[in-house]
């Protein structure tokens, strides 16, 4: 059971992916390659073809967004035109998004493979594994947080390209709520129940305005999920938000 279903890559997709090869050939065209690759990845993420998006991503040489701006390499700070800067940000966001999904799949696999061994957990042998597991999970959370943050930032400042803006808004609506549900699943199944409830703080915050990308039905479903966490908390002898009774 994977919460983010994927769609298979078709031959037509394949030829789109391969088209990028022509653009990465000449280093001076990197900026254009990045923009075209972004546009294709945007479409793939939108149609849930994550592995196809990953293929496009792998076509771009690592760090290619830096190579056509030698100054960026040196100082880390250079005035790019808004268009280039947005393209780079989008590229980094797609990377964070793909990594977050891979992270979840790894986590998911790991979590379920771990489960049968749970009784053995008490013995010392599995301790390192558990630490590694917690570490990975932490990384996932961080990545997700970072991704969210950067995605929030990049929707600003791009009024010139209305199609892109529209696509970005749809992507936010498509990707962010499921990620929140995934994060809830992780926190709930690892019994970090009070953190589940604190997800409400993140989603309701005016800084990120995540609640705006939720459809009403999704919010209702999310509140149901939080209710489940609350009830689990009550079973541990805390109040509904995980605090000691006053």
């Amino acid at each position: 059971m994977q919460l983010l279903q994927q769609t298979a890559t078709t031959d037509e997709d394949r030829s789109k992916i391969n088209a990028i090869d022509w653009l990465v050939f000449d280093p001076s065209q990197r900026a254009e390659a990045l923009k075209q690759a972004n546009a294709i990845m945007r479409m793939f993420v939108g149609t849930r073809k994550l592995s196809a998006a990953r293929d496009v991503f792998n076509k771009l040489p690592a760090g290619s967004y830096r190579s056509h701006h030698p100054q960026l390499e040196k100082t880390g700070n250079v005035d790019l035109c808004a268009e280039d800067e947005n393209a780079i940000r989008e590229y980094l966001c797609v990377k964070a998004y793909l990594d977050a999904n891979d992270g979840f799949n790894d986590w998911f696999e790991h979590y379920h493979d771990m489960k049968p061994e749970k009784p053995a957990m008490a013995t010392g042998a599995n301790f390192t594994e558990r630490v590694a597991f917690e570490h990975r999970q932490k990384q996932y959370e961080n990545e997700l947080e970072r991704w969210r943050h950067t995605l929030m930032m990049q929707t600003k400042d791009c009024e010139r390209d209305m199609t892109r803006m529209h696509q970005m808004r749809l992507l936010r609506q498509l990707c962010l709520p499921p990620l929140c549900f995934l994060l809830h699943t992780i926190l709930h199944s690892t019994e970090q129940l009070n953190k589940c409830l604190q997800l409400a703080d993140v989603i309701a915050s005016e800084q990120y305005k995540l609640y705006q990308v939720f459809q009403r039905a999704e919010l209702q479903k999310f509140l149901q999920k939080l209710r489940e966490s609350s009830i689990a908390l009550l079973d541990t002898g805390c109040d509904a938000l995980g605090y000691k009774f006053e």
Partner: peptide, 10 residues
């Protein structure tokens, strides 16, 4: 307050 806000939007 956050939960209340989310409930309001629901």
């Amino acid at each position: 307050l956050s939960l209340s806000k989310l409930a309001a939007y629901a």
